[in-house]
Amino acid sequence: MKAIILAAGRGERMRPLTDACPKPLLRVRGKALIEWHLERLARGGVREVVINTAWLEEQIVAALGDGARFGLAIRYSLEGRDHGGALETAGGLKKALPLLALAADEPFWYVAADVFAPAFDFGAAAAAAVRPGQLGHLWMVANPPQHPGGDFGIADDGLALAGRSGASFTWSGIGIFRPGFVTELMGDFEAGAKARLRPYLDAAIARRRLGATRWTGDWADVGTPERLRALDAA
């Protein structure tokens, strides 16, 4: 499989750490945050990755290069250069998707660069979670203190539920999507426009075409300097 890593955000809550360093390059336990994902993706068999960038994007390109040292081929969707800033989650996905050169129904990994999941397995068993006919599949975690209301529930049949339905969990920032998630649901804006992902996740849930799985491994949303320090101290 191939993968897209979303790494374009400004990281406002991480200031002043992100004033001179893009958030994905902040070091967690001795390694840049995004490198944890790249190493795990490579271990899971992924060989092609697209990374979207905006804030201080030249630092990310310089640090990761072509990906050869990770066993990967990395390409970049340069939102800062092309659009003057980040396109947000859905806008970033829509711009980056053509760079993966996917077959019509070929699933791909979606990974938020600002989460820490050092043991997540991107191998074939996890990739098989997205069922035929589904547009995507999300991995959910227990609600952290900073997000007690969660995002979505999980139905007995493995489908994601709207946040108001059943027990609620927080999306880990890791998922699998098919190209149809973009081509079928995101026709209301042009590539290069800003858009958030949540409305399109809700649309896929309403169509009963988004799956979900509970994941109980080590996970953190590295959203503040305090959380970063706590991870390093753990």
Rank of each mutant, 00 (worst) to 15 (best):
G11I: 04
Y110D: 07
R69V: 13
E184I: 02
G67D: 08
R207K: 08
V130N: 05
L33A: 14
L210M: 09
N52D: 12
Y76V: 00
G30A: 10
K31M: 14
E57H: 13
A126R: 12
Q134C: 01
R198M: 11
D19K: 04
M140A: 13
W139E: 00
E48H: 11
A101M: 09
S168A: 15
P148G: 10
E184C: 00
L99P: 04
R10F: 06
W215F: 03
N143R: 14
A160K: 01
G223N: 10
L161K: 07
K31W: 11
A204P: 01
V49W: 03
V49Q: 02
P132V: 13
A220R: 14
P179A: 13
W36H: 13
V28P: 15
A234N: 10
L25S: 10
L78R: 15
R15F: 00
A204G: 12
T53L: 09
L100P: 02
T89S: 15
K2E: 12
G71H: 03
S77D: 04
A42I: 07
I4N: 01
V46C: 09
P107H: 06
L6K: 10
D151Y: 04
D151L: 07
L25K: 10
D221T: 05
L97M: 06
R43G: 12
M140Q: 12
A86N: 14
G175N: 05
A203I: 04
I34N: 08
I176L: 15
E39D: 14
L17I: 10
R69G: 05
F116A: 10
V61H: 08
H83R: 09
W109E: 01
N143A: 09
V49C: 00
I51V: 13
R29H: 12
V222D: 11
R229S: 15
P199K: 03
G123H: 04
T216G: 15
V130S: 07
V141P: 05
A191L: 04
H137N: 04
A119Y: 10
L135R: 06
A104H: 07
G85L: 02
P24D: 12
R178Q: 01
K194A: 14
L78Q: 15
R10H: 11
R81C: 12
A54M: 02
V46N: 02
L25R: 05
A193D: 15
V50G: 00
L201K: 01
A160C: 14
Y76E: 07
L33Y: 06
L210D: 07
I51R: 07
W139Q: 05
G92D: 08
A220V: 13
D157P: 06
I5C: 05
I154R: 08
R178T: 06
G163A: 14
T213V: 11
L135W: 00
V130L: 14
L201W: 02
